[in-house]
């Protein structure tokens, strides 16, 4: 009983957003049960929408992760891709499905695989404002000229937003501050010997840990580590 309580406490410690939401809902349900139930009904419809899209998005990204090489992604969305990369980013965002939160993990994967920060922002924005199904609904309700004019203004605008964000924010900042993969890198780093012997071909154990976390290197790349099995376990479970 006590350990279950501890598990729940730990869960909410690791999921602050969930903790906040549950707290808000408890307050609402106590003061106005009807309001709470109506809210849950709306939530359920959003939840179904999410279930339609997210699993497919993640499967596609999982396949990209194992089949598409870092070089390919860098060639399409990397720093050197130039104008071609901008258009590829607008295009991939335009043919996406689902709300913007589905775009975050996709963009994060592309970033890790070598995409430039600016192009990530372009994909995110295109995903949000100019995706194809949205333009169709927009034409239906607001008329063709409204849709076209908004499109013509929006595409250059999101490319500018991407370029400016790319100038202000470095990739290193994102990798350091992301709570998604950062933890995994930390944990692998702890398991490596830490004396930066360089036998694996990288300058530091930290760098090796990043490569292993990205899936670019197998855990056995480190010849002086005795924790290969643990590292593999970490990669399997993801955290």
């Amino acid at each position: 009983m006590r350990s279950r309580f501890k598990m729940i406490v730990n869960f909410f410690k690791n999921n602050k957003i969930a903790a906040f939401t549950v707290f808000v809902y408890i307050v609402v349900l106590v003061y106005s049960p009807n309001l709470g139930i109506d809210s849950l009904k709306i939530t359920a419809s959003y939840f179904l929408e999410m279930l339609e899209i997210l699993p497919a998005v993640f499967i596609v990204m999982g396949m990209v992760e194992v089949w598409v090489s870092r070089e390919t992604i860098m060639g399409i969305f990397g720093k050197g891709a130039g104008l071609k990369g901008r258009f590829a980013s607008v295009l991939i965002g335009s043919f996406s499905a689902g709300p913007i939160y589905a775009a975050f993990p996709v963009c994060y994967t592309l970033l890790k695989k070598g995409s430039a920060v600016s192009n990530i922002v372009i994909i995110l924005s295109a995903w949000a404002v100019v995706k194809a199904p949205m333009l169709i609904v927009e034409t239906q309700f607001m008329g063709l000229s409204f849709m076209l004019v908004r499109y013509i203004f929006t595409v250059p605008a999101i490319i500018m937003i991407g370029i400016i964000t790319g100038k202000v924010i470095s990739k290193e900042y994102i990798v350091k501050n992301s709570k998604k993969e950062g933890l995994l890198v930390e944990k692998i780093d702890e398991l490596l010997p830490g004396h930066n012997c360089g036998a694996c071909g990288y300058g530091s154990c930290r760098e090796t840990a990043e490569r292993i976390a990205d899936g670019d290197e197998e855990p056995d790349v480190c010849v002086s580590s005795e924790e290969e099995k643990k590292v593999r376990e970490l990669l399997e479970t993801g955290s």
Binding site: A18, V22, V28, S39, Y46, Y101, G238
Partner: peptide
């Protein structure tokens, strides 16, 4: 794919509940 989903599912469901409210 599974890890990505596990990494974000709780957050998304929480946010959806807040949007509903």
């Amino acid at each position: 794919a599974k890890n990505m989903f596990k990494g974000i599912a709780v957050d998304i469901i929480s946010i959806l509940a807040l949007i509903g409210l």
